[in-house]
Simulated scan of single mutants.
Amino acid sequence: MCGRFSLTATPQEVQELFGLEEIEDFPPRYNIAPTQPILIVAGDLRREEGDNRTDRRALLARWGFLPGWVKDPADFPLLINARSETAAEKASFRAAMRHRRVLIAASGFYEWQRPPKGSKQKSTPYWIKPRQGGIVAFAGLMETYMSADGAEVDTAAVLTVGPNREVAPIHDRMPVVIAPENFPRWLDCLNQEPRHVADLMVPASDDYFEAIRVSDLVNKVANSGPEVQEPAGDDAAVEVEPARPAKRAAKTKAPETPPDQLKLF
């Protein structure tokens, strides 16, 4: 699962990595939560061979996927993640997997390690970021939802996969990471069917991420400054002890998301 992440890179860094012709300024965001706007990249090369221009574009989408056939968002589950293994067959995601694959710009994500069953301890939050720093591109799906009054809103979900060795002691799912050299394949929904990009939906290499224990400040969306990424002690970056495997997170809610964020519609 991915229930919180951050994007603290500059607009210029995002523009360079994703090959965007233009991008609007945005501030660093340290604690992005479900239903908030997230930065996604859509589109890909659509010109003749040898023309290196790109029609990739950056846009904001609500983090919380809404299939077009939903009648009332209030009665529909908040889909912030999609399991990569089954997304191509699921009614909610099937069309987006074929026609609307996107990249989601991030600097890393947060995950909570659950204590052993019966323990009175709280879940322990970790800040999981690329070991070498920089921007990470999550695989995502997009859908433009039209409400009853005709208003349109772009929505998105993060594709997840089983964990690599670094993340496994913390949680049983992690975001799918798309390497820059694979951006064209992932975004090319015109020529690349889901079966053609299935090989990209695998865990990141074991040494790609590092997990840093942080304080429970990150549990509250109101805490949105760099302090949420501060290590929670001198041993914060040591190898974590394996915990009880987390249950499937399809219906798990992100910690303490303010109710007023659900009023986008």
Score class of each variant (00 low, 15 high):
W63Y: 01
L66M: 09
N52M: 12
P67K: 06
R56F: 00
D55Q: 14
D72F: 11
P77W: 06
R62H: 03
A74W: 04
D72W: 09
R46F: 10
D55N: 12
P67R: 07
R53F: 08
D75Q: 15
R62G: 00
G43R: 02
F65W: 06
L60Q: 14
D51L: 04
R57D: 00
L78Q: 08
W69A: 07
A42Q: 15
R57W: 11
R47Q: 10
E48H: 11
G43L: 04
L60W: 15
A74Y: 08
P77S: 03
T54L: 09
G68I: 00
N52C: 08
E49F: 14
A74T: 13
R47T: 12
V70M: 06
W69N: 02
G68V: 04
D44A: 12
A58M: 03
R62M: 05
K71W: 10
L60A: 12
G64K: 05
F76G: 01
G68R: 06
L78P: 09
E49A: 13
L66C: 05
A74D: 10
A61V: 07
K71E: 12
D44T: 15
R46L: 13
L66K: 05
L78T: 09
T54G: 07
V70T: 07
L79F: 10
D44K: 07
G64P: 00
D75G: 10
F65S: 02
L45E: 12
A74S: 14
A74L: 12
G64Q: 02
D75V: 13
L45P: 08
L79M: 14
